[in-house]
Design a protein around this nucleic acid. Structure first.
Lengths: 195, 195
DNA sequence: CTAGTAACCTGAGGCCGTCTCAGGAAACGC
DNA sequence: GCGTTTCCTGAGACGGCCTCAGGTTACTAG
């Protein structure tokens, strides 16, 4: 957080544009935390001290806004996925899969409604969230196949099944805020994967 | 289904009102099936050949419309719950619980978005869906406690946990239409309940 | 310091949705 | 038929999404 703040935005931006972008992201994060991913974009713009059009100028859609907001968290998940798959650092297949599922479920629970958005982003190739969703899905697929090949999970489970279960868990956790319960439920779900 | 159609509406209604009510329910069912429970009420009214105000006259809120639409299905679930709890007809505790969970999950998957509505109806005492949700929840609670007392499920699981799991399953099944997958996922979930 | 330019911002306005309510229409009972 | 009660209508207030023509501002080259 210094002059390298423009990491993944090599093109110089006008100072006011940069400021507005940051305020918008901050307000969007606050609004999404409080009201979920369906929070009013108009209100977000207003609270950022900016006109609606400015918001749309920076983020053409809700998905684009989310994508920008989640960039770091997604990056961290990609890294985790790589580590869980790399031959040198990977834990046993079942543990790798469950650690992945817990991480993704926790991520999808970050905002109420995020699970739906990620689900939708996977289906819609035009969504700004599509790339991220696809990478998450690919990592999950690889981990699932490895676990399946090792006989660590029921043979009939497909990667899509795993994705569905993670989404459901994220949906649930995203509207409860009870971490103890979340843990119990994830345990039920993950134990059920075993053959 | 004949002249006894006004079962739970003892008060005579004007013929046109009765007709409109039925057309509205039919169109709402169609719309909810196609587009989920967030379908536009204006469009439903229009397709029923009626002004918006008429719809709101019959059903003050989306929840009221859903409540009317689901009345029979809820009644059937209450009956099932009673049977699963009655000492004469009840199967073993674990089977009773899982049959209940499967039935409620299937019900909540009837329309995309219904799971959220039922969840919300439980929380909001003013919702027209509240009574039905509360009864469903009570039956689930009793079945859970019985299963827990019999040592058929993990000791740490609460009735709220079960409700949450059923909701998540309903959410999932409500946006997939793959019954084979639905079965696999429910199996995972229900097997995970065991100690 | 200044002018020119490209980048950016604004907000009215079109569209659709929810929900209400005053006034009009229609069914019913006699 | 006629009065009464019940019901229906649809304009309109309000908020959300999204766009785009026109105004504004930061930067830059001189």
């Amino acid at each position: 957080m210094s002059e390298t703040a423009r990491d993944h935005a090599p093109r110089r931006r006008r100072a006011d544009a940069q400021r507005n972008r940051e305020r918008l992201l901050a307000e969007a994060d606050a609004a999404f935390r409080e009201q979920g991913t369906e929070a009013s974009l108009e209100r977000i713009a207003r609270r950022a001290g900016v006109a609606v059009g400015t918001l749309y100028g920076h983020f053409p859609s809700r998905a684009a806004l989310l994508d920008a907001l989640l960039r770091d968290r997604h990056e961290a998940l990609f890294t985790l996925g790589d580590a869980l798959l790399a031959t040198t650092t990977a834990p046993p297949p079942f543990e790798a899969l469950t650690r992945w599922m817990r991480a993704v479920a926790a991520h999808g629970a970050g905002y109420t409604g995020l699970a739906e958005q990620l689900w939708g982003g996977l289906d819609d190739p035009d969504s700004e969230l599509h790339a991220a969703c696809a990478r998450l899905s690919a990592a999950g697929r690889a981990l699932t196949e490895r676990a399946r090949a090792a006989g660590a999970i029921r043979a009939e489970l497909t990667p899509d099944d795993i994705f569905a279960l993670v989404s459901a868990a994220a949906w649930l956790l995203g509207r409860h805020r009870d971490t103890a319960q979340a843990d119990r439920l994830l345990t039920v779900l993950l134990d059920g994967l075993r053959p």
